[in-house]
Amino acid sequence: MPAGPNSDTWRWRANARHYRTHVLGDVTYVYCHLSGETHMLNLVSMAMLDLLVQRPYSLAELADAFPACLDVPVAECPPAVVARLFGELDDVGLVERVSGA
C-alpha cells in the first residue's frame, strides 16, 4: 500500500496548500493539486490527514498519537493499522517526507 520504502526515523507531514477539501456528510472530498486526483476520505483517514497537517510525525510517533487523536485505546488502533492507514495517504501522494529527517 505505501508508495515506497519507509523508515521509523523519516518524518512525514501533510501540506494543506497541496490540496482542497469539501465536506459532504461524513465524507470529505479531497482534491490533490499535485496528482490532479480527487479522493474520498472517511472520518478516520481525514482525521489522520488533519493530524499530519499540524506537525510532522515519524511512523512511530504517529502510532502513538493517532489512537489518542481518535480517542480510542491503542488496542483498537495498533501500530500496524496506523501504518496501513498512513500507507493509503502515502500511496496517493497526500503526505510528504520532511527533508532533513
Binding site: L24, G25, D26, V27, Y29, M40
Partner: peptide
C-alpha cells in the same frame, strides 16, 4: 442517496 455517495 447521500451526497457523498451520489458524487462517487
Amino acid at each position: 442517496v447521500e451526497a457523498g455517495d451520489a458524487v462517487m
